[in-house]
Simulated assay, not measured.
Amino acid sequence: MYLKMPGWYYDKKELRNSPSAQDGIDFKTEMRYRKEGARLIIDTGSRMDLGYNTMATGVVYYHRFYMFHSFKQFPRYVTACCCLFLAGKVEETPKKCKDIIKTARNLLTDHKFATFGEDPKEEVMTLERILLQTIKFDLQVEHPYQYLLKYAKCLKGDKVKLQKMVQMAWTFVNDSLCTTLALQWEPEIIAVALMYLAGKLSKFEVVDWIGRTAKHLRWWDMFVEDVTMDLLEDICHQVLDLYSHTDSANTPDSPPLQPNKSIQQLPPNAQRTSNGQEKAVSP
């Protein structure tokens, strides 16, 4: 089995025994709270034109935070803004705390925003210290995006179909942020699984790839070893479950953050604007 790095990865039993679960919040509700916080980070970040890496880093902080604290103790929308605020500084796309709160305010109902209390900025700034201690000042986070682009460049086949598959996989990576996959598996494995899913759905079958040798049965064997089909299927189903709900509250509804060039033109870490900020727009 693929060896997990220590520290930030949990099995499903551990995920179901979270501080929120111990605090009496059922698993389905906790998953909804995680999704709603992740969505606020993504929607707020999108409105503020933050790079996808910044938003993804903020979401990972958010998921990690709630492996140590209960949703009953720390309101999810306050935590979401705090995570985006910190991620902006770490990913060198800083935004003022008050601007993040103002943007989030426009996305939340009065009832939801009430959880920020009398002084929203003070709430977020105070929480930042707790967040830093909780994530043990482990600030650098890798995401599946870079691996998705790296792996795709090795695949041979119809360029148009390949591009379609990559765009679809990119969207799946975005939406996977609303799940706990980032707490379960390394970004390389998530990238492989969601490229596999996108390949199936877009009918892009990988038959050859750069660097292929006799020992490689599948293209991803070059990058991650001993990944079973059962594992890939499990990851795919966790993402597909996001789309299985018909009510709008549970349907991913943000615009996809997709690369706006052909895969062959994208450098390893996507594009950067003149101020160093990553840029990701729909094609």
Results as ranks from 00 to 15, higher is better:
R32V: 01
H143Y: 08
T180W: 08
M55Q: 11
D253H: 11
I25V: 03
Y145P: 00
E118Y: 14
G37D: 04
G24A: 02
Y243R: 03
I263R: 08
A270S: 08
E225F: 07
A38G: 01
L40A: 01
V224S: 07
S176A: 05
V90Q: 11
D234P: 02
R105G: 01
R105Y: 10
R32P: 00
L217N: 13
L217F: 13
R16K: 15
M55R: 14
V59R: 11
Q146K: 15
P256N: 04
V166T: 04
Q184T: 04
L162S: 02
F71M: 04
T246A: 03
F85P: 00
D23L: 03
F116G: 02
D234L: 10
K279A: 08
D26R: 09
R212L: 06
Q264S: 08
V90N: 09
E123K: 15
Y52N: 06
P144K: 11
L162P: 02
A104W: 05
L231M: 14
Y77K: 14
M67K: 14
R76Q: 10
G45H: 10
P256H: 10
N250R: 15
G45I: 00
E188Q: 15
T179Q: 12
E30I: 00
T103N: 04
K28E: 02
I235Y: 09
V78N: 13
S70R: 14
Q140D: 06
A191R: 13
L201V: 06
K200I: 07
K150M: 09
Q22V: 01
L107T: 04
L155S: 06
K96Q: 13
E92S: 08
K98G: 00
V192G: 03
K121C: 07
I130G: 03
I42A: 02
L242M: 12
A182P: 06
G45F: 01
A21N: 12
F68N: 11
K200V: 04
Y66A: 01
K161F: 10
Q73M: 09
S70V: 05
Y243A: 00
G24F: 06
